[in-house]
């Protein structure tokens, strides 16, 4: 059984890194800011995995995203997933050439299953992370939203996830739009929407404000990894501290020596 994972998600919008609250974006800083406040070569040692998403609300600049991806992942020897607006196999390959190991897909899961299958044929299903954004409607029922949370998908979230279970993907990134950026903890009720025979790893996202929320998520048997995209709550050595506290609890997270072990 693999150890549970802590994942940090970076949200990119045309050259800037963003804070998202209920999918409304606020600019935090550009790649220089990120480098200054999150030294990734160092920070990456406090996380198990990094996800970088292009959530640009205007027209996407794919080339600029790739350049940015290359910059933030340099010197980061942890798994990296990237995505946001991937519509062609060539774009997926370009992300892999820019430092990504896995591709995050979202909207196409619901309206272009053929594209997902083509990606899986080319890259292997284990290379695909299915990202699903969920929001409760007025009656409290979950619905899936696509295109950066702008468009609802027809049908119940339960049906959408049952359909998704038939697609060749390697992991599920389950994100709560209602809890996104609020810092009030994950919405574990999303997990009840999964079919009983769900068989791929689940990443829980949306709402973590501190390490105690991460602990709640990691404690759930269906959850394989927890993610946070909160750029400000974990600034500086926040991720490192969160990991240390979780290990003291004790969660059985992966361990590795400090980087100075590589000095001759």
């Amino acid at each position: 059984m693999p150890r549970k994972r802590i994942i940090f998600t970076l949200l990119h919008d045309r050259g800037n890194f963003m804070l998202s609250r209920n999918f409304r974006l606020q600019r935090v800083g550009n790649a220089d800011w990120l480098e200054k406040n999150y030294n990734f070569a160092e920070i990456a040692f406090a996380i198990d995995e990094l996800i970088v998403l292009d959530v640009s609300r205007g027209e996407r600049n794919f080339a600029a995203f790739c350049t940015c991806l290359e910059r933030v992942t340099r010197g980061c020897f942890a798994p990296i997933a990237a995505g946001g607006g991937v519509r062609t196999v060539e774009q997926a390959r370009q992300l892999l050439r820019s430092g990504a190991d896995k591709i995050v897909v979202n909207s196409a899961l619901h309206h272009d299953g053929a594209f997902i299958r083509r990606l899986a044929e080319d890259l292997g299903r284990q290379c695909l992370v299915a990202s699903v954004d969920l929001k409760r409607d007025a009656s409290g029922e979950f619905r899936v939203w696509i295109e950066n949370g702008a468009t609802p998908v027809e049908g119940s979230a339960r049906d959408c996830l049952a359909r998704l279970a038939q697609l060749p993907v390697g992991e599920l990134y389950l994100n709560s739009m209602d809890h996104d950026g609020t810092g009030r903890g994950y919405d574990a009720a999303m997990l009840d929407l999964l079919p009983p025979d769900w068989s791929i790893p689940v990443i829980l996202a949306g709402g973590a404000g501190n390490h105690l929320h991460m602990a709640e998520g990691l404690g759930l048997p269906q959850v394989d990894a927890v993610a946070t995209a909160h750029l400000l709550n974990f600034v500086g050595n926040g991720l490192e501290n969160a990991r240390r506290r979780l290990m003291e609890m004790p969660f059985d997270l992966a361990t590795w020596p400090q980087r100075d072990c590589l000095k001759p």
Binding site: M1, P2, R3, K4, R5, D48, R125, Q126, G170, E171, S199, I200, P201, D224, A225, A254
Partner: peptide, 11 residues
């Protein structure tokens, strides 16, 4: 009951 793919850090 373990999931496939096997993804993550394992000893």
């Amino acid at each position: 009951g373990r999931k496939v793919p096997h993804i993550g850090f394992s000893p």
